[in-house]
Simulated scan of single mutants.
Amino acid sequence: MIEFIDVEKTYANNVKALQNINIKIDKGEFVAVIGLSGAGKSTFIRCINRMHDITQGEIIVDGIQVGALKGEQIRTYRKRIGMIFQSFNLVTRTTVLKNVLVSFVPELSLWRKVTGLFTKEQKIKALTALDQVGILDKAYVRVDQLSGGQQQRVALARTLAQNPDIILADEPIASLDPVTSKQVMDDFRRINQDMNISLIMNIHHVEMALEYAERIIGVREGQIVYDGKASEVTEEVLDHIYKGKVAEGTTEFEGKHAYV
């Protein structure tokens, strides 16, 4: 479980990226975080794995106070969390398999790091991860010979090789065409369902968010303004998230999930 308690994040220029964030995300949930550019979506995602330190409050993951971790504790904690970026972050002049094996570098002994030799077990895990995303046949192909969608699958395989409990995805389909985006989102949904990995995705494509995620978190100006099931999101909800509008005569949603 991931819990934010009174979390705030203020940058050095006094910009408040997050304000008064109180939310819980249970294991195995597929959550899409939506909102305008600059609303605080990426900051929200990156605070979970300590890429950004919060200014105030607490983030607790499975009972661990994330802000209290130091040094080796942070590195150990991050092994449980996979991170997927829009830019893929791959070494394009080497093979797909070597890019996936990079996830094991922190575990290597010094002589293995120097020689670049990985264990048989690590290679099997890497190949298994490639099989899980449907590109095992590309294991010995150079990354720069792959399509954008295939490269994003390599990045996803690299993350799966870590055997994470949580996957954070920061605009993973922003640079992909619609057909490829759907294929990658299919991968994310299958992994979420089959492996029960918590998946939190910052995404601009609202239609994709509503189709694939179970839960939508709407962020505006650093605050959570909507939290509810994807199936309950209406045009009025989207107007509230993106434009700050509430339907005439309405102050909040009726029922469990409401405008915040």
Rank of each mutant, 00 (worst) to 15 (best):
V15Q: 11
A17L: 07
G28C: 06
F30V: 14
K41H: 10
R46I: 11
I48N: 04
T55E: 10
G57Y: 00
E58P: 07
I59D: 01
I59N: 04
L69R: 01
T76I: 14
Y77A: 09
K79V: 09
R80Y: 08
I81Q: 00
M83L: 15
M83K: 05
Q86N: 11
V102G: 01
S103E: 07
S103M: 05
T115P: 09
T119L: 02
Q122E: 15
K123Y: 08
K123F: 07
T128S: 03
T128V: 11
Q132N: 11
V133H: 02
V133G: 00
I135V: 05
V141M: 08
V141W: 04
G148K: 01
Q152T: 13
L160V: 04
N163F: 08
P164G: 02
D165I: 08
S175G: 10
T180H: 02
T180W: 05
S181L: 07
S181I: 03
D187V: 10
R190E: 15
S198Y: 00
M201N: 09
V206D: 10
L210D: 14
Y212I: 13
R220G: 08
G222Q: 05
I224P: 07
S231H: 10
E236D: 15
D239G: 08
K245Y: 09
A247D: 11
E248H: 03
F253T: 12
